[in-house]
Write a protein that binds this DNA or RNA. Structure first.
Length: 950
RNA sequence: GCUGAAGUGGUGGAAUUGGUAGACACGUUGGACUUAAAAUCCAAUGUCCCUUGGGACGUACGGGUUCAAGUCCCGUCUUCAGUACCA
């Protein structure tokens, strides 16, 4: 009886589904373990072999933990809001909800495309997901709680003293009792001071305006990349050379009122929290970069002949005597106020010119130095000397205060700017040559020409400068973060609607019992002619405070019926908290995002696996929301993920045929030398393991190749190979369904792991799968022969036990180190050895199945069943490793001469050092090697090696 | 530029605290079985020299430490990823 993987796999997948084998329990005596994958965005293109890599790894770990006696939560769902569905909707007029459902569940979309669906594709690979807990972010039952969290953020403020978020009502109480002088909140820069008395006299509208500046989510004017032709805001990466990536339309920088998230309040905690996460240094480093902490000072410069002051942030207050000019960002508010009449022309022309350039362009074009003099002067805080004030686009409006004190001798950008505009470059470093470039190092230098700072080093001078600035009330020590508040509005249709309506232009939250606010129906998924977001097209999109429901727009009277927010939330809203939703069983999901019971039991994710493209954004945002929810007492954990692994990308191995230029001849790879050829991608499915092209298949592929002539070498056409990103346009996409059909899911799972270390990028080459497939056949033959089951009660031999326990030991180590590729080799070795030993002993073969089961669950389940087990192997005990079976009495010593291994010698392990040396020195091969020489030294490491020197 | 990761046969990749480099596969070559093919099985396979025994060289490159280095240290180069005028 041979190995019929298709039958076996279908059988057990059905069994697992029917018996809910992988359903997690919220009440269990077992210890809990939560294994999570980053949930997929269900695109119409379906899965390719790169997608399941991380899922297979996490599945192996989840299954292993079940064998080890854990109650495992291993859920899956869909990040189903997003841009591609909306773009597709615009093109085809289909509702994104429909295309999204088809992409998940399969079927035929309105355009007539037959779509397999993510779910079926995933099921075919045999994952141990608990599908009963599935979530979809676009489902109103789910986004109800995304909206709820948004409301909680709106209803909260952040106290810097306590480093914690509190209800906004507490802040109102503080304001009414003592004004805002005593509070230390994270808030907008432009808040005014007021007393309790003043606060209490404010109108309701005024109070709302003031509070908005303190809320953790707030409306604010933000500078965005606006594309008038597309009618939407674009992210930086959607703009190429100042034009939109889609359609090449002009993009301008525009201020727009947008919802923002005050993530900056959490900057320090997000940084500190990294210490508690188990992940790679590179991931931590990219989080740190993003947060961008820098320690320095804020310094205030007075503007001469003006009441204005310029505040700057600097990391080098010790170089304050090196300031020879100030630079403001062209967008800085002060520019228009301080520019002299003489300079107005220059300054305005410059501002116009820079406004046309996107932020990205400015960043990309670092070499061009540009700027303009405002005609105004600032006053040096200590020397009181006048300092010319310039504007320049190398200063970014969005970072720090949008202004810098320029120290050309100590900063290369300031230096280049000064050289370009012939501004003086005073040297404040003792014995340093600055004729060629700035001196930016902090160490091993003393400050000079700096009055009271002379002779001090960086550390001392910094401290002193801050102290002196404080005395003048013109500065203080300050820590700055690069992390900016996150814009939370999108001018899109396919996202969560805000639970917000506007009364006299002031945002009001809809009470939580009326949630969800369901996305309205619209005719076209495009912005309105007036440039409003797509929701501006909805006819029924107003809020009635009487019926507490969404009503027709024509009822808007601004007394009881008000307009609703037209923006939707960004993609990261739904993915910032989904891991908590899985914790709750569907039956109990109505009353809360998850019950306290479920949250207390599962706590947070023990293992999180996903792509590195989410290493910054998603991770930062979800960590932010979790910290906020912890502050407000909704959950009990400070970090969402305990351990995080980024799987590497699987690359495609493209195949090329070579068309000789000007002919219709295709030359085999070996014949192209010296010829003018044009490489053309061939579909990888036409190429076999030996890189030989199926010429007929290629000819039939496309009309233009029908008449092609093929010049062969050794009777075959050889293609060229190149590793590239897996993509449809390169014809190197491999579909896991096809692999499952031809070799089986177990082969796919093993092969994906066998390719190499999980975290590394590695090329896919279908040819190699015959190796692991052959292994599964050998495994099968170890249990089943032509007459049926071939497993006996025979007493295992010493060798049998040694093979089994060696395998258990290695596989446990591998799984716990996430080194899945080496486990597969270990299985191969085990099966090769047991086959050679002609092992039929059930005592060996039964536990072996439990070891292999996490990797190849279908075949393991089938053989387990054939051995007479009536329950699933999924929760069978993982066999215990016993050291005694590996104890050896002798060792095959490598005998080296001057570090080079010459031969091996089998010696008992209980031999002493001296005895080993004696035995080795007496050996004929040793004598031959030495050729009469006397060794200077003999190194004997018992149990390891012998090295003879001399 | 900065940060991080990595450079090992024709290919993917193994190699505990420094201790037999190339496990396990793919591919290739030869053989068995077969009318033939597929499948399966057996053998060889880092490079070079050599008649066998064997020898020389080999983990990106150049140094160093050590009885012993893919592994540790210093320097250089290359590739990939992330990030970028952050004051």
């Amino acid at each position: 009886m041979s190995y019929h993987f298709n039958e076996i796999e279908a059988k057990w997948q059905k069994y697992w589904a029917e018996n809910q084998t992988f359903k997690a329990e919220n009440n269990s005596d077992k210890p809990k373990y939560y294994v999570l994958d980053m949930f997929p965005y269900p695109s119409g293109a379906g899965l390719h072999v790169g997608h399941p890599l991380g899922y297979i790894a996490s599945d192996i770990y989840a299954r292993y933990k079940r064998h080890k006696g854990f109650n495992v939560l291993h859920p899956q769902g869909y990040d189903s809001f997003g841009l591609p569905a909306e773009q597709y909707a615009i093109q085809t007029g289909q509702h994104p909800a429909d295309t999204t459902r088809v992409n998940i569940e399969g079927g035929v979309d309105k355009a007539g495309n037959e779509i397999e669906g993510y779910r079926k594709q995933l099921d075919r690979i045999g994952f141990s997901f608990d599908w009963s807990r599935e979530v979809r972010t676009s489902n109103p039952e789910y986004y109800k709680w995304t909206q709820w969290i948004f409301i909680q953020l709106f209803e909260s403020w952040y106290c810097k003293n306590h480093q914690c978020a509190f209800p906004i009502s507490e802040l109102e109480k503080l304001f009414s009792e003592e004004g805002n002088s005593g509070v230390n909140p994270a808030c907008d820069d432009d808040v005014e001071s007021f007393t309790a008395k003043e606060w209490n006299s404010f109108s309701s509208e005024k109070k709302q305006d003031v509070l908005l500046k303190y809320r953790l989510t707030y409306l604010a004017e933000t500078e965005v990349n606006w594309c008038p032709a597309l009618g939407t805001v674009l992210a930086n990466d959607e703009i190429v050379n100042g034009l939109s990536e889609r359609g090449s339309h002009p993009v301008i920088r525009k201020k727009m009122t947008q919802w923002s998230m005050r993530i900056s309040a959490y900057a320090e905690r997000l940084l500190q929290g990294l210490e508690t996460i188990d992940c790679t240094d590179s991931l931590k480093e990219s989080q740190r970069n993003w947060i961008g902490k820098s320690v320095g000072a804020s310094v205030t410069f007075k503007v001469k002949d003006s009441a204005e002051v310029i505040e700057v942030f600097t990391t080098r207050p010790d170089t304050i005597y090196g300031v020879s000019f100030m630079t403001l960002a062209p967008e800085h508010d002060l520019v228009s106020k301080i520019t002299t009449d003489d300079q107005k022309g220059d300054v305005e022309a410059y501002i116009q010119a820079t406004a046309k350039r996107s932020e990205r362009d400015r960043m990309a074009d670092v070499k061009t130095i540009s700027g303009a003099f405002t005609g105004a002067y600032a006053e040096h805080p200590f020397s009181k000397e006048p300092i010319p004030i310039w504007i320049g686009d190398y200063v970014l409006a969005g970072y720090g205060t949008g202004a810098v004190m320029s120290v050309p001798c100590g900063d290369q950008r300031d230096y280049d700017f000064a050289k370009h505009f012939n501004i003086e470059i005073p040297n404040i470093f003792e014995g340093v040559d600055i004729s060629e470039e700035a001196f930016a190092a902090k160490d091993n230098v003393k400050i000079a020409n700096s009055d009271f700072l002379n002779g001090m080093n960086y550390k001392k001078a910094t401290k002193r400068a801050i102290y002196e600035l404080e005395q003048l009330d013109q500065g203080e020590g300050k820590t700055n973060y690069r992390l900016r508040d996150a814009v939370f509005s999108r001018q899109r249709y396919w996202g969560e609607p805000f639970p917000v309506y506007y009364v006299k232009g002031k945002p009001q939250m809809i009470e939580q019992q009326h949630l969800p606010i369901v996305l309205p129906e619209i005719e076209k998924y495009l912005p309105t002619e007036e440039g409003e977001p797509p929701l501006g097209r909805a006819d029924v999109w107003a809020w009635s405070t009487e019926s507490n429901s969404v009503v027709s727009n024509d009822k808007v009277n601004n007394t009881t019926v008000f307009p609703l927010e037209l923006n939707t939330m960004p993609g990261w809203a739904g993915s910032s908290w989904y891991f908590f939703r899985y914790m709750e069983e569907v039956a109990n999901r109505d009353g809360a995002f998850a019950t306290q019971n479920a949250l207390n039991y599962w706590e947070n994710v023990d293992l999180y696996i996903g792509g590195s493209e989410h290493a910054t954004g998603h991770l930062l945002y979800s960590r932010f929301w979790v910290k906020f929810m912890k502050d407000r007492g909704f959950i009990n954990v400070d970090e969402p993920f305990k351990k995080l692994i980024n799987q590497g990308m699987i690359l495609g191995t493209s195949a090329f045929v070579y068309k000789e230029e000007g002919t219709n001849k295709f030359l085999s790879k070996g014949l192209i030398e010296g010829k003018q050829v044009q490489p053309i991608h061939s579909d990888v499915s036409f190429v076999n393991a030996s890189d030989e092209l199926d010429i007929e298949a290629f000819k039939n592929w496309r009309e233009e190749f029908k008449e092609a002539e093929f010049i062969l070498e050794d009777g075959v056409y050889k293609v060229g190979r190149e590793v590239e990103k897996m993509s449809k346009s390169k014809y190197n996409v491999v579909n896991p369904d096809a692999i499952c059909k031809q070799y089986g899911a177990d082969s796919l799972r093993l092969y994906e792991m066998f390719l190499g270390p999980l975290e590394q990028a590695k090329p896919w080459n279908t040819a190699g799968i015959t190796g692991v497939h052959g292994f599964l056949k050998k495994l099968w033959k170890l249990y089943v022969n032509d007459n049926g089951l071939n497993v006996t009660d025979a007493e295992p031999t010493k060798d049998n036990l040694k093979t089994l326990h060696k395998t258990i030991k290695k596989v446990v180590e591998d799984i716990e180190n996430f080194s899945f590729n080496t486990s597969v080799s270990t299985f191969m070795i085990a099966v090769n050895e047991l086959t050679a030993q002609k092992c039929t002993s059930k005592e060996i073969l039964e536990p072996l199945l439990a070891v292999i089961s996490p990797y190849a669950p279908h075949i393991a389940e089938e053989l387990w069943n054939r051995l007479g087990n009536e329950t699933s192997i999924a929760t069978a005990d993982f066999p215990e490793f016993e050291e005694k079976h590996l104890v050896e009495s002798s060792k095959n010593y490598p005998i080296s001469f001057n570090g080079k291994m010459r031969f091996t010698l089998e010696l008992p392990l209980d031999m002493s050092k001296e005895e080993i040396e004696k035995a080795v020195m007496a050996h004929e091969k040793t004598i031959a090697q030495l050729e009469g020489r006397t060794p200077k030294k003999v190194i004997v490491v018992p149990g390891k090696i012998v090295n003879i020197v001399g």
